[in-house]
Every structure is written in C-alpha cells, then in structure tokens.
C-alpha cells in the first residue's frame, strides 16, 4: 500500500505532529515501505478467527466506589508548562 504525500500530511495532522514539506517525500517512501511489508498479513486466512484484544486470560476487575485520592493540586500542576497556581493553560481556544 503506497502512501502519497497528501495522505502522510493528513495522518500527521491527525497525530498532531508537525512535518515540514521537505520531509514529506522521504516519509511517504519510508511509510509506504513499512506498509508494503506488513501487507504480507493479507495472505493469512483469518475467516473464522476472533480478534485477540488481550493475552491476559482474565475479565475486568472492578474496584469499590471509594474516594482514595486527596486534593493534590500542586503535585498535579507541578510539571505543567505555563501552568499557574490553579490551572493548566493552553493557547486560547475559540469555540
């Protein structure tokens, strides 16, 4: 499956990773190579196979409805770039 540059740019937008125009052709070739290689899976007959979502042979454990977390605003915000004393911040969003 060959990826064109437009598709690579769209995927980069979905992933929110800046890719320069100059990087697009190289990336398109590289990603096409990898996709071409994984294409080999299409040869496997999986018509009666359930997809495997986890190797863990368990069902979902549940916890009790108990508050276990105390207020810890300082610790939560401590690593935030440009956080103030109460909030994380981002460039202003216009809805």
């Amino acid at each position: 499956m060959a990826l064109d540059q437009k598709t690579v740019a769209r995927v980069a937008m979905l992933a929110r990773i800046k890719v320069t125009e100059a990087d697009l052709p190289g990336l398109a070739t590289e990603l096409s190579g990898i996709l071409g290689w994984i294409e080999q899976l299409q040869a496997v007959d999986t018509s009666d196979v359930e997809p495997m979502t986890s190797v863990a042979d368990l069902t979902l454990p549940m916890r009790e409805d108990v508050v276990t977390v105390a207020a810890q605003r300082d610790a939560i915000l401590a690593n935030g770039p440009e956080a103030n004393e109460s909030f994380f911040t981002v460039p202003k969003v216009v809805e």
Binding site: E82, S86, K92, E95
Partner: peptide, 12 residues
C-alpha cells in the same frame, strides 16, 4: 476561555 487574553484555562 474568558479568564486570560491569550490563554484558555483547563480544570480537570
């Protein structure tokens, strides 16, 4: 969006 001229504030 109305607390700061160029930033939005996030409360989780």
């Amino acid at each position: 969006h109305d607390q700061h001229p160029v930033l939005s504030y996030i409360d989780l």
